[in-house]
Amino acid sequence: MRRLLRRLEGTRVSSRGLVVALPYLWLIAFFVAPFLIVLKISFSHAALAIPPYKPLVVWTSRSVLEIRLDLRNYLAMFAHRLYGDAFLNSLKVAFLSTVFSLAIGYPMAYGIARAGARARNILLLLVVLPFWTSQLLRIYAWVGLFKANGLINETLISLGVIHQPLTLLFTPFAMYVGIVYSYLPYVILPLYANLEKLDWQLVEAAQDLGCRPWQAFYKVTLPLSRNGIVAASMLVFIPATGEFVIPTLLGGPNSLMMGRILWDEFFSNRDWPVASAIAIVMLLVLVPCMMAYLRIQSRGSDS
């Protein structure tokens, strides 16, 4: 009997199961299941009802159960230029923002990783601080800088560089600045984590074997930080594709971004099925990116 009891509590499977079960079930209920509902509603159609869409499954007559998959939402996306343009534009903006963020973030991460221990802590802290500060407020700061009578225009005018205020706010430029600015910490931190682990003796060895510093960087440092680069890119590219706040506050009412369109369809037009279809199409593009990110992450934790 005692042996049996021991066996029961000794079985790792059950305790293991208990530890993982709670978060597992939570994520299935509140993260995975919702996507199935989004998928379902994307095949419905808007209606003046509560909730504002037609049911998929209807009893048409006494004995016929009809499932109506309404493809109009998806077809509309191909039919209206607006969606296609917004979609391509979102990908373009996300891609270019990723490139710009890397261009600024990589040298910074490199500089931090090669700084002395004390300086490194301070530099890291200075990257983390904005990360902990509200994104909304930080984007709002740029509104103040970019306005017609904002700090940038005022400064340039008082320096005599320009005489008429430039239109900065509500331009694609402002949007790129906002996205790069918001996501810069997300680029620097994983790159730093990667570069910090890099064995600098490898770079020295390469130089010892005749590489010039730039060659050593190009042939040793860069390839070895590939995982960090991919992870950092995904941390910008995926969320930037669906970004809502930055296009709204800095890109202006005409900025064509999927996140904004989805928001407007949902809140302004109350067209939940179209909003769902937009979400599904975005997911189709983003899920492969997420898988790439996941693969890098799990490989990182194995080694």
Partner: peptide, 27 residues
């Protein structure tokens, strides 16, 4: 699957997470 589910919310565009949660609650 568990790893995927704990990683995806880190990068998932918020509009998608938000929309899907709302639709879940309504349903």
């Amino acid at each position: 699957a568990f790893t995927a589910m704990t990683t995806a919310p880190l990068v998932m565009p918020e509009v998608i997470t938000g929309l899907s949660l709302l639709l879940l609650f309504v349903t």
